[in-house]
Design a protein around this nucleic acid. Sequence first.
DNA 1: GATAAAAATTGATGTATGGTAAGAAATTAT
DNA 2: ATAATTTCTTACCATACATCAATTTTTATC
Lengths: 191, 191
Amino acid sequence: MKELIKKIKSNQDLSTEAEEYLYSISEKKTFSRGEILIGQGQSVNKIYFVLNGCLRSYSIDKNGKEHTLQFGIKDWWISDYIGIHNNEPAILTIECLKESIVIEFNANKLNNIFTVFPEYEPFQRNLLERHVVTLHQRILNQLQLTAAERYDLFLKQYPDIELYTRNYHIASYLGITQESLSRIRVEKNKR
Amino acid sequence: MKELIKKIKSNQDLSTEAEEYLYSISEKKTFSRGEILIGQGQSVNKIYFVLNGCLRSYSIDKNGKEHTLQFGIKDWWISDYIGIHNNEPAILTIECLKESIVIEFNANKLNNIFTVFPEYEPFQRNLLERHVVTLHQRILNQLQLTAAERYDLFLKQYPDIELYTRNYHIASYLGITQESLSRIRVEKNKR
DNA sequence: GATAAAAATTGATGTATGGTAAGAAATTAT
DNA sequence: ATAATTTCTTACCATACATCAATTTTTATC
């Protein structure tokens, strides 16, 4: 477990006490393919750090269609930040796509760490800044690239994700239907 | 100026020293419609806090088309966070849409505040968290709403923005052409 | 390994949005 | 106020992607 937390720490210095605190409020868990970690409509207070495997967060719209917001792979954090921030029921479902080991945090307790160990702040700030940059880039990609270009880029960003995702997971992340993605893949193979 | 910074402070407590530091590294500026604050391709090290008026950040794609990432209105921060984070030339242009008063920060100096005044951390964290939530919501809207629905939502979020934006500013934010937006508006008026 | 279930592909067709171009309207400059 | 410029609207046609349905392929289960 110690070494697992090291990954959370990244390159930041963190006191042993703060590290102990992280242990005390977290729980290492294993999930299998198909398991739901957070369900849309339920109350949310969990934040996950992925040690290995693959999770997916998605929203189900009024027509019952799924829209993937994020894939959670190794060393990524994943949760329903909208639900947590608004203090409302989850608007996302988080599902396990392949056998995964994660560290589960209680959101409130994790948020408490800043009052107890302010030294944790720079780490969190760095994390949030990177998150914002990633999201900005994603929005720009969505605005200016074609579906085929977005798919190419996606494969570069998640090189072996196709090993454990279904076509429609990726399609719903790219904002197209699975049929369209299928056609894009056919075209791509012709090239 | 004191009261201006109060807005930045929001509801957070901030020591007088930290406040003084913020003064010392910032500069209050006025821009007129059409002025470019940051130009795509140039180096970026500025971050703006909008006191009043309206700014817009956008990217120009390989076909010369503009794609609006963000509108910067009262009390919003705006910059090219991608360029700053990657330490690369700006990928965004920031333009002034109507006479605006802003506080201009040097990104590096602003970043320094955390070593000098760690008490500023919670404020920044809160800001970043809200930013992430906003972006998550925007991505979900883009994925699951029609252009007309996104336009309706946009008008609710920015009630009087049409007073100082052009049609194509909004269209490029919604991910459609100005012609399509025009048609959507016509349909909307029929309802 | 056989069977069932789920997912991917493919074809035919529909729809939303894009592209181009022209004219109308609104805004800005003189 | 008038002229010049920019923006908005509209029409027509093009295209990317969606929808629906049938078929093939892959994956899971017994």
